[in-house]
Design a protein around this nucleic acid. Structure first.
Lengths: 257, 257
DNA sequence: CCCAATTTGTTCGTATGTATC
DNA sequence: AGATACATACGAACAAATTGG
């Protein structure tokens, strides 16, 4: 029984798409995982009774989705492949290329998720993990002396958040936190917001993260949530200020996307 | 050639992949949006100096990502296409096919996002929008008399959440709420949790949503957040109960994914 | 209703590249 | 180095779909 395979718009599929779907559901039904080798091109040609070109296009479709990978040579072929986080991020990023997210949009999500992450980790981190977080923090324990140093501290600060996300057992939460950080970075780069690094932003981050680690170590979920919530609010506010400053300086009339 | 030029993972791209990337960045640089027609196959063959098959595979790659759509006939061709939400959902779903989310994982996200959505909408909805929400609620204002009715009420209840998400101006929030609901539905279907519809779950939903609409109308963001937070906790709890019951009944020894 | 033009969709035969033994 | 097995690429032809006369 196909439970929810409804197509509102009949959308006749091309043959390569049909083949791709067939292979996909075939792999799922058999429960095949990464590394399993699919039949060779010539075998698929026989099995589906279609030409080489059609089969090859079908495999390209699966490859574009990150579901398979093909290798040439003896012992080569098409293999089931675990969709990488990079691929998933890129594919989802395509969707938002057309949706035009604002800084407010992204921070609304980060504001909800990051404190939740901190609260869920409180008391459940090993001393090794806490030490790893502290290690990253040493990269920006003292005020930056140059623009170069400031930039390095910024990167390290982002690594802190990425590392924290990595410690969550929730793959969805991990992905979303990294995705939102990624989208934010993309926007700041495209708008050149990084051109005006804000010393207050990264230096205040140090203080927040110091208190966060303490709360995590003590297992104080409420405090951890509150600290990260404040941190997000502050970062959001500072980023909007940068945006305003930049807009006033360079874009007095026109709007840039 | 010195053998020292080792490629750790330079990931040599196949020609169709190169062409796909070239077309993609070409479209972005020119700022072309949905509806713009790309050069025809034959033109692309000339331009890139490659065979028809290679060019077609490149277009399939873009099509699989939802970035273009092709039509046959005069006036046909390959057109830039806005990635649909359905496509984005499916592509991201592929990623989590390998990551094995639990009900807890998904509810951790819903628990964070749904209350945030409610709070952000409080006081900003038009009377027409509020009326639309109330209209959906009339579908399950009285207790279900049959399993069929109960199922319909369940669907209507999900529509309520989808409609609420649709009213957010934040495209990322909209997408995430619908995505998480979708993943949850997929899991419940694959585990047949729907086989045991829980009357308490959907009837209690009615009360929550009634109070939610009142809070939204009054512009009480704090109350709206709290109501949806409680609703999520309750739904999460009930769903875990169903899972436990089902596991005890049908899966005494083995684990099902 | 059919016909013609246009564009993508599909097939087949052949040749080339690449990794393994 | 050579043989083998596999994907990759090319070119010419034909089929199908859509539009307009």
């Amino acid at each position: 029984m196909s439970p929810a395979t409804i197509r509102s718009t009949p959308e006749r599929l091309s043959r390569p798409q049909q083949v791709a779907e067939a292979i996909k559901s075939w792999v799922m039904e058999n429960g095949w995982g990464p590394g399993v080798r699919l039949p060779s091109e010539s075998e698929l040609i026989e099995r589906f009774g279609m030409s080489k070109g059609t089969i090859r296009e079908a495999i390209r479709i699966l490859e574009a989705q990150g579901l398979v990978k093909s290798r040439t040579g003896p012992g080569g072929g098409v293999f089931v492949h675990q969709v990488s986080e990079e691929r998933a991020t890129a594919l989802l990023g395509n969707y938002f290329y057309f949706e035009h997210l604002t800084i407010d949009d992204i921070y609304q999500i980060r504001q909800a998720l990051e404190p939740e992450l901190a609260a869920s980790l409180a008391g459940s981190l090993s001393e090794a993990q806490l030490a790893a977080l502290e290690e990253v923090m040493t990269r920006y324990c003292e005020p930056a002396r140059s623009a170069e140093e400031e930039r390095e501290q910024h990167v390290a600060s982002l690594r802190f958040h990425a590392l924290l996300a990595e410690m969550s057992g929730n793959a969805l939460l991990r992905f979303l936190i990294r995705f939102t950080a990624n989208m934010l970075a993309e926007i700041t780069v495209s708008r050149r917001l990084y051109a005006q690094p804000n010393r207050d932003l990264w230096s205040s981050g140090f203080d927040y993260q110091l208190r966060l680690i303490a709360a995590l170590r003590e297992g104080d979920a409420v405090a951890a949530r509150e600290i990260l919530s404040e941190h997000m609010k502050n970062a959001h506010r500072l980023m909007l200020m940068q945006e305003t400053v930049l807009t006033q300086r360079f874009l007095p009339e026109n709007e840039i996307i």
